[in-house]
Amino acid sequence: MPRPSTTTSSGYLLALTQAIEKKLQRALASQSQRLNLLQELFAVIALEVDGRARDIIHMRDDDGVSPEEGRIQNQLCFYDVLADHYVRVPDSGKLILDLIVQLWSQSFASNIFALPFHKWVFEVQLENSEVLVRYSSALVHGATNVFWIDIQTNTRRFFSLFQQFPVFPNAFLVGGPADIFVIELTDQLQKLKVEPVLLLYLSQIKAFQGLELRMTTSTRLKACLYSFTSPGGPMYPTRAVRHAAWDALDFLFPVGRYPRHLISLFFRLLYPWYWSSSCLNFILSCAKAILYSILRLIFSKWENVRKP
């Protein structure tokens, strides 16, 4: 079967862009149907691309490589295609941006902006810093919303929005994509109250080791982890969460490990009502360690007896 021409691919992307423009214009013109129209548009651009559309979109460039083909593994959504298209052809999304700006205060507007323009924001060169701040704020707000949509539905539809996309030369305000991701993650961590979820995040956060972050971002991450290491308010973390936070903190920031523990112990001594539980846990931990050591010794001797 012959591959469609590059013109066909460009025409498909142009038609998709025009459909989004019409939907936004209808939302702007109809106040009563505005919320429903924006919700429908958000659902459409978050849909997965079907096989036929995928064949049309996957056009090879002059080097024989399709940008989407080199990146996509399993799932390709319309916002993925649009994000790459608006980076390659920035002017093609100008009308959509103008319409979204007029709908900033509406629900789903920041979500609709964040999905197809999350790469464009790092690529665009704007002289007006106020406009850049507005776009960056909308990106963060929209990315936060879709992050919680994935969390609540237990899906990974918006996973590609949070991958390590390339560091562009005009990283603004808070640094590069890694800084933005870590800052948002620390904010979300402090809102989580479910122990299994917190334990999962604290165990996986060790993947940040070696990540190049700004000093302010690194300090923010360190403060976030440290806030989970102390019992009582305002977090009231469980013992398991406190230990997981200590493990992550010591793994990511080994420098100053012992002074941190010493200072934490000093402040724990100022609250005598925690002593009883701490002593009980220490005794139980020692008893378990001794019991396991005895069992290992018995099993090892039993194995030695059986071998001859």
Rank of each mutant, 00 (worst) to 15 (best):
219 T>V: 05
219 T>E: 13
219 T>C: 07
220 R>C: 10
220 R>T: 15
220 R>N: 15
221 L>S: 01
222 K>L: 03
223 A>L: 10
224 C>F: 02
225 L>G: 03
226 Y>Q: 08
227 S>D: 04
227 S>H: 04
228 F>E: 04
229 T>M: 07
229 T>P: 05
230 S>Q: 13
230 S>Y: 07
230 S>E: 10
230 S>F: 06
232 G>R: 01
232 G>S: 00
233 G>R: 07
234 P>A: 01
235 M>R: 12
235 M>T: 09
235 M>V: 08
236 Y>R: 02
236 Y>E: 10
236 Y>T: 12
237 P>I: 00
237 P>T: 02
238 T>R: 06
238 T>Q: 10
239 R>G: 06
240 A>E: 08
241 V>R: 03
241 V>S: 02
242 R>S: 00
243 H>W: 11
243 H>T: 15
243 H>M: 13
244 A>I: 08
244 A>F: 05
244 A>V: 04
245 A>G: 03
246 W>P: 02
247 D>C: 08
247 D>H: 09
248 A>R: 02
249 L>E: 00
250 D>M: 09
252 L>Y: 01
254 P>L: 09
254 P>W: 05
254 P>T: 07
254 P>H: 05
255 V>Y: 04
257 R>D: 00
259 P>S: 03
259 P>K: 01
260 R>S: 01
260 R>Q: 02
261 H>A: 11
262 L>G: 05
263 I>R: 06
263 I>E: 06
263 I>F: 07
264 S>R: 13
264 S>F: 07
265 L>F: 11
265 L>H: 09
266 F>K: 14
266 F>G: 09
267 F>W: 08
267 F>R: 09
268 R>G: 09
268 R>K: 08
268 R>V: 03
269 L>Y: 11
270 L>G: 07
271 Y>V: 15
272 P>Q: 09
273 W>C: 05
274 Y>Q: 12
275 W>R: 12
276 S>E: 12
280 L>S: 13
280 L>H: 15
280 L>I: 06
280 L>E: 14
280 L>C: 12
281 N>S: 14
282 F>T: 15
283 I>H: 05
285 S>K: 14
286 C>Q: 11
286 C>R: 12
286 C>D: 07
287 A>K: 11
287 A>I: 13
288 K>A: 14
288 K>M: 15
290 I>D: 06
291 L>Q: 10
292 Y>P: 00
292 Y>V: 09
292 Y>H: 10
293 S>V: 03
294 I>N: 05
295 L>Q: 04
296 R>L: 14
296 R>P: 06
296 R>K: 08
298 I>E: 06
300 S>K: 08
300 S>M: 09
301 K>C: 15
302 W>M: 11
302 W>Q: 12
302 W>L: 14
303 E>I: 04
305 V>L: 13
305 V>I: 07
305 V>Y: 10
306 R>W: 07
306 R>N: 08
